[in-house]
Amino acid sequence: MSLTNAQYNSIMKDYEQTRDRNRHLTEQRRLEVYTKLPEYGRLDESVGELSVAQAKLLLNGDDEALTRLRLSLKDISRRKKELLVSAGYPVDYLEPVYTCPDCKDTGYIEGDNGLRKKCHCFHQQELDILYEQSHIRDMIASENFSNLSYEYYQGEDLAHFRKCVDVCHNFVQNFKQDYHNLFFYGTVGTGKSFLSGCIASELLQSGHSVIYFSASGLFDTLARYTFDARAKEALSGFYEDIYNCDLLIIDDLGTEMTNTFVASQLFSCLNERHLRQKATIISTNLSLEELRDRYSDRVFSRITSHYDLCKLTGPDIRMCKKRMQNASDN
């Protein structure tokens, strides 16, 4: 995933604040132990004094000074641990505190090649940002491949759905190396949004940036950016987000109030993402004929030329589930 500079700086600032909090916690613990166990503090002080004394002996030619220092430090460490345990503290109570011990709250660890790489905790923060940007955190909690079911489809409807599921799996598996777009269309409630959510869930989990908009929400936001000077500043990064995210999902195309502005903005969005080779998924209840009639010929041409068309048919699954629920309640 590609973070903006502001997002990266925000994550690194969080790490800095975490280190400060943990250093403060460690220092509080040390003061607590020194107050309760004065002997522990004296042992800590003796480490420095002993080290200086033995260093002088070593410089004066005493070859055994280093060995004696190591034995003395080992004995002091043992006595300090005994004091902690006897007072009811964990043996590691005064060890440095890290929220992530792997990277020591820096966000980076050493890779196999000796170079720094992002720690798993850094990647998790990236994923959290992706989820927030995507607008689909709640949706993918239920709409994912593990919840996929074929039980509501029969005959030709089932064949259509199976084919679309295969297309979705291939889309995810080849996402890194192949540029593809998907266009889900067909009757109401047949799983178009569900399959979009399945794909989004998989790609978000693998660290890709996914942004979801209902068609009405997308065009409302575009209108605010275009016509509202105050909103323009707040949405300054909006165009780059929708143009540069790895996957843009436009759900329920056709439910918005369609006009020349919408048709123009839709084409600009689709065209720009195509030029940048960024994948887009569109779902709609419109037929291909209705799509051509409602939007410009160039929108229709862009979609039919550069999108895999996935037709879904069958009963309205939401209504089927509702009837089943009512039956079970009775």
Rank of each mutant, 00 (worst) to 15 (best):
T4L: 09
A6N: 13
S10V: 05
D14C: 00
D14F: 05
Q17Y: 14
Q17D: 09
Q28S: 09
Q28E: 14
T35L: 11
E39K: 15
G48C: 04
A53K: 14
A55R: 09
D62I: 05
E64N: 11
A65W: 09
L71M: 07
K74T: 09
Y89V: 03
V91L: 01
Y93A: 07
E95M: 01
G111V: 02
G111Y: 06
R116V: 00
C119D: 02
H120W: 00
F122A: 09
L130C: 07
E143V: 07
F145S: 06
N147P: 03
A159I: 11
V165I: 12
D166F: 01
F175W: 08
D178T: 08
G186E: 07
T187N: 11
G191Q: 11
S214I: 08
G217I: 03
F219H: 04
L222A: 02
A229Q: 14
E233I: 11
S236N: 11
E240L: 08
Y243R: 15
D246G: 09
I250K: 02
G254N: 09
T260K: 08
S264Q: 11
C269P: 02
L270H: 00
T280L: 00
R292C: 08
R294C: 01
K321E: 15
Q325H: 12
N326K: 12
S328W: 01
S328E: 13
